[in-house]
Design a binder for these strands. Structure first.
Lengths: 332, 332
DNA sequence: CTGAAAGCGCTAACAG
DNA sequence: CTGTTAGCGCTTTCAG
């Protein structure tokens, strides 16, 4: 039975012309109720479904949005993708998901592929290579999340108050008595981490603690790598607190330090970032800075839809969502 | 500069006909090297990119594959999605990702949307509502993963040796001295969990331990829910071992039991399933049954590509990938 | 209110 | 080897 049935078949069945069918399906304006009924009956009877490819060719709209992100298995990006997709789905827009794997070259390929596919808009979490932003045509609706492109680009941007998060985390540690505070951060020069670092530095300054560059430990957000880094420095540097720029880093650190015999939080206190689901269920549970991922995701989706429907929105805006500290067992 | 340039422009620039351009771009057969050069030069000069929508309309191929899965934030599905996408990308096939959220109705919408989009094939992880499988047209290449549809459907299926996994986990606990072994399983009637349960039962039988239905604890794969379930039963049922059908369940259980004062593994030994990255870094690290997610993902992608290129492959096959036990601290 | 006709950009016979 | 032609399925003037 798999013969694809087209508008032509519906038209014949309903005894009207193709254009009338099209009219009924699209807006229903300028059509008698009677013809409407005839068409609708025929549509049902034949189980007709419009061919969106043909429609796309004609209208130059695809009802699809591309999402490029570094790694879907990172729980932050995973949740983000989910909330974006959820919202787009409400508007019958499909999501084309692309993992750049933090690789600018793959990212470039994906951008081109998505443009070729004529996506109506693009939501973009950069691999950190700003040049790829130049691939976007002027008139393509684009929303950038999380990793801020350099300032001179006129582009919509959404993220959390990362600096404030770093400040809150560090302040919490200081007020709990820590004086020698490590910061664990991504090795990449990517804005959220840098802003968290700025927050960390600002807190130290406010409490008159000297900033020491050797207290910044760089590692991929990878459990194994952070373990190796911790093993390498734990007996070279003296520290009583850790601000981990991501919960994954916090988990790797806690695990490694526990195995080395340190007590958390008695010997070393730790604050993470992101509030991934496991943070609450880790042993010990992890004090962390929560981001409102759902809000970021929904806002991104809403914004891209708005941009698609109304391309001329003038000066691009930025949006920053509040973060807050959740106190758990990894700090006193 | 954003005027979309088409094959016509290239043809004019190169001084040839549109069909010649098409020929050069597609296979290059039956064209002089000279014309080839002319065309290629024009393509480069104009920075031409083919319109895949138009091509799709004409060829009835979209070079895209749909992936429907229950929840991208579940690390098993996330990794699966990533490995599928990776492989498809090698073949220049785009992935349309859809989260059904374990909801048959959303799932149905997505199936229809993907069919409307004329995806070339579909990779499908069911929400557990088999009727949705009937929505697939006979001639659509489909690969089902993880959750096996009822046997009478002629459909390609890929998963792990779940029963064997359940057996290995339970056997390990028994050989470590456990006699009262809980099984934590998804509340859904979904095949992987049921097969793990069969493995659990088979192991008990082989070691002459009675199966007691009250030792099967059902919970969503959700940290909070499993916590509540454990709290409810821990002092009603006596147990010295737990086989958790998913690492997430294992983590929720360990955390809850630790808080209650039980020592893991001294008082209670636990084996999980999946080998998610955190299993290795949990406190204590978790003995688990590893699935070869990458292999499953790559196989699915390869299979769907094969089916797309060669629709008539006859009787549908099933593929089961080996699992193995990784010994860590949550068992002795 | 409805139908005819053109055309979105591309590919695939079919001639030559 | 290359050009002409038709048409994929739909929307959108333009007449009527």
């Amino acid at each position: 039975m798999s013969v694809k049935i087209s508008m032509k078949d519906v038209a014949k069945e309903a005894g009207v012309s193709v254009s009338t069918v099209s009219r009924v399906l699209n807006n229903g304006k300028y059509v008698t109720d009677e013809t409407k009924n005839k068409v609708n009956t025929a549509v049902k009877k034949l189980n007709y479904r419009p061919n969106v490819i043909a429609r796309g060719l004609r209208t130059q709209k695809t009802n699809s949005v591309g999402l490029i992100l570094p790694d879907i298995t990172n729980e932050f990006f995973g949740k983000l993708a989910k909330s974006i997709e959820e919202k787009l789905n409400e508007h019958n827009i499909n999501l084309l998901l692309c993992n750049s794997n933090e690789n600018p070259k793959i990212e470039k390929n994906y951008i081109e592929a998505l443009l070729d596919k004529s996506v109506d808009g693009l939501i973009f979490i950069s691999s950190g290579f700003d040049e790829n932003l130049d691939l976007f045509p002027e008139d393509l609706p684009v929303v950038v999340i999380d990793r801020r492109p350099s300032a001179d680009r006129n582009i919509y941007f959404i993220s959390s108050e990362n600096k404030k998060g770093g400040y809150l985390a560090t302040k919490h540690l200081i007020e709990n008595g820590c004086r020698d505070i490590l910061m664990l951060k991504d090795e990449k020069l990517v804005s959220p981490m840098n802003e968290r670092l700025l927050g960390y530095q600002a807190a130290l300054r406010d409490y008159n603690i000297d900033f020491r560059p050797e207290y910044i430990i760089k590692s991929k957000i990878d459990l194994k790598e952070i373990k190796e880094k911790i093993l390498k420095i734990h007996n070279k540097i003296k520290f009583d607190g850790i601000f981990a720029g991501a919960d994954r880093l916090a988990i790797g650190a806690i695990r490694t330090l526990s195995k080395l015999g340190y007590q958390i939080p008695a010997d070393i206190q730790i604050v993470g970032f992101d509030n991934i689901p496991f943070a609450k269920y880790y042993n010990p549970s992890i004090t962390t800075i929560a981001q409102q991922i759902d809000k970021i995701g929904h806002k991104s989706a809403e914004l891209i839809i708005e941009l698609i429907n109304n391309k001329n929105m003038g000066q691009a805006d930025s949006f920053y969502f509040p973060v807050y500290l959740i106190k758990r067992e990894s700090t006193t």
